[in-house]
Each structure stands twice: as C-alpha cells, then as structure tokens.
Amino acid sequence: MMLKEEVGMLRQVPLFSGIEPSKLKLLAFTSERVNYNDGQVLFRQGDEGDAAYVILTGKADVVVESEAGPIVVAVVEPNSIVGEIAILCDVSRTATVRANGRVETLRIRKDHFLRMLHEFPEMTIEIVRVLAMRLSNTTAELAEARAHH
C-alpha cells in the first residue's frame, strides 16, 4: 500500500477527517508501517502509550484483563484507530490490542504527532473540534443513561 492510499485511509478516520490532505501525507510519511502476524500484540494493557495505530488491513481484538481472565471487548477493523488517547495525553494503555489474523498498521508516534500539532495550529483546532464532538456525544449519552435510571 502506497502513501497515497494511506492518506485515503487516514481521511476516513474520524479524528483526522477534517485535516488537509498535505498534512495527512506528512503524517503518513513520518509514520511507520508495521505488520503483525496472528496473535502478535500491538500493545499491552498498563504499558505506557507511545503511539497510536491505524488499522490498514485485517482485524485486531481489543482485550481487557479482568478477574475472570481476558475478555475481548471490541474488534477493530480497517480505517479505525486504536490507542489514540495515549498520543494526546499521558495515560497508560487501558486495554491490550492483539492481531486477529494478519494485520497491517500505520504506527503514529506520539512525539511526531505532537510535533505536528505544534507546527500546524489549524490541525490542532481540527483535532480539538473532533474531541469536543466526542465529549458532547459522551455527555449526551451519559445524560440519557442517567435519565433511564
């Protein structure tokens, strides 16, 4: 998969959808292509987060360790991003992500991503907009959930 297609994939990730294509290209270029075989782990719960991963092909399981053992809580598919919270703030990983079959990813390093936000404020504003939308949705969902109880 070439840079152009990667940019196309990144545009479909909601977090990046509003960002200029030329900046997305730089983001893709400075990111690393990392492939995983079935069962290989992208990152582990509790580790310090240093990168986010955009799934280009294949599927990965999001696994949470519980008292009853590991539980698969979600499956990520192409065009989605995992671990993105870790590149925005300093939190440890809240879940383990494991390749389910062969997975191709684009690994966006935290320091690179923050450098880009620093360099291009319009990109930062776009990200903030997306995050604010999410927050608003989450707040709305919470309010709805409370109302049901």
């Binding site: 030329s22 290209k25 730089l26 270029f29 400075t30 450098r115 360099e119």
Partner: peptide
C-alpha cells in the same frame, strides 16, 4: 518538497528522509 517545505530547518522530521 511538498512534504517538508513548510517545516523549519531544524525540525526532527528531516531525520525521517
């Protein structure tokens, strides 16, 4: 040039190419 022309000369991204 398209990718890097906007960046300041000492930017760490230059080590990427």
């Amino acid at each position: 040039i398209e990718l890097f022309a906007d960046l300041p000369p000492d930017h760490p991204f230059f080590q990427q190419q």
